[in-house]
Amino acid sequence: MEKILLTGGNGFFCTRFAQRYQNTYEILSANTSMLDVTNEAQVNETIKNFNPDYVIHAAAKASTDFCNENPELAYKINVTGAINVAKACKEVHSKMIFISSEQVFNGNTNGGPYTEDVTPCPDTVYGQNKLEAEGLLKEILPELWVLRFTWLFGIPERNCGMSANILWGTLTDILKGKKSLVTPNEYRGLTYVHEVINQFPKIFQIPYGTYHVGSHNDLSRYDICTLIIKEVGLEHRLNELLGKDLEKYKNHTRDIRLCTDKIKSFGLEFSESADGVKKCIKEFKLKL
């Protein structure tokens, strides 16, 4: 049985991955209390002792505000931590999957969808961290996949971590009786987390390199929230539950969508974002 070590093991992606593949791989899901990626000695010891075939490095400080306000700590976690993991992988000949982000394009102004050949221009500390780490890891470890994820979404599940996402955020506002104010001036890929997880073993078979991962989306953030409200059966309350934030990105539409044709050419398929939303709502029986 092949062995996989997950960093950031208590997070949104890794908890679901570990649950899905617990009988397929021998998995060490290393949460922050078990593995501090900024501690080089601890990283070396953990990876050496487990000797994994693959390391999926998902540990990161992803909050844009936190990273902007704490750039030194963000760098230590997001860049130095990734370097520590890559060096340890090299020592034991483990293959590494680095989870990066669409946020490397959040300073680009041409508009997406962006291919892997487009030069990223991040304008936040988090995006800059991810892009710098991508480059440094490639210098350390040739056996590396860099996966730039679109924004993953899902709902709370038993024994799984959660993170802010468009579906659960909209549903939470509904449950609180709060009206969501959402910009119609933002476009980004939105991907059902289980679509990524269910196909993940295919990634181990494709050439090393950088890949954009997730769903294509032609709808604005406001349009997606409208869809969510309709799909859960509350279309009659749409005006009560949803309003437009016309100030946000009014001077320049934010478009950080990714072109995922490259990874699709290797057999991975993703629903359109709207269809992924519908699939999740149907699978979890969220219609009210």
Results as ranks from 00 to 15, higher is better:
152 L>V: 07
236 H>P: 00
179 K>Y: 04
268 L>A: 13
237 R>D: 13
82 A>S: 15
161 G>H: 03
122 P>F: 06
6 L>Y: 13
117 D>E: 15
63 S>V: 07
178 K>R: 15
77 I>N: 08
68 N>W: 05
277 V>C: 03
258 L>S: 06
84 N>K: 10
288 L>H: 04
228 I>W: 01
54 Y>L: 08
123 D>H: 10
64 T>R: 14
153 F>K: 02
210 T>R: 05
190 L>G: 00
142 P>W: 06
77 I>S: 11
112 G>H: 12
205 Q>S: 15
281 I>C: 13
136 L>M: 13
18 A>T: 02
171 L>H: 03
268 L>G: 06
74 A>R: 01
56 I>C: 11
5 L>M: 15
101 S>P: 03
288 L>D: 06
18 A>N: 08
13 F>Q: 03
42 Q>H: 02
41 A>C: 06
20 R>T: 14
86 A>L: 06
149 F>E: 03
268 L>F: 09
246 L>I: 15
52 P>M: 09
102 E>K: 11
192 Y>W: 12
23 N>V: 01
137 L>Q: 07
155 I>S: 05
181 L>D: 12
208 Y>V: 09
246 L>C: 14
157 E>D: 04
228 I>L: 06
118 V>K: 14
96 M>H: 00
127 G>T: 10
6 L>A: 12
105 F>D: 02
202 K>Q: 14
111 G>H: 09
160 C>Y: 11
196 V>S: 07
173 D>M: 03
182 V>P: 00
128 Q>W: 01
253 T>D: 09
73 L>E: 09
204 F>I: 09
104 V>H: 01
160 C>V: 07
145 W>V: 06
60 A>G: 04
183 T>A: 06
177 G>S: 08
8 G>R: 04
243 G>R: 00
93 H>I: 00
115 T>S: 15
123 D>I: 13
27 I>M: 01
78 N>D: 08
109 T>H: 11
195 E>S: 15
50 F>E: 14
257 R>G: 07
165 N>W: 00
142 P>H: 08
134 E>D: 10
62 A>P: 04
233 G>R: 07
127 G>Q: 08
248 K>E: 06
233 G>P: 02
247 E>A: 13
87 K>I: 09
24 T>D: 10
284 F>A: 05
29 S>V: 08
273 S>G: 08
118 V>P: 10
109 T>I: 12
282 K>F: 10
80 T>P: 00
157 E>R: 08
136 L>W: 01
268 L>V: 12
248 K>H: 11
255 D>V: 10
202 K>E: 03
74 A>F: 02
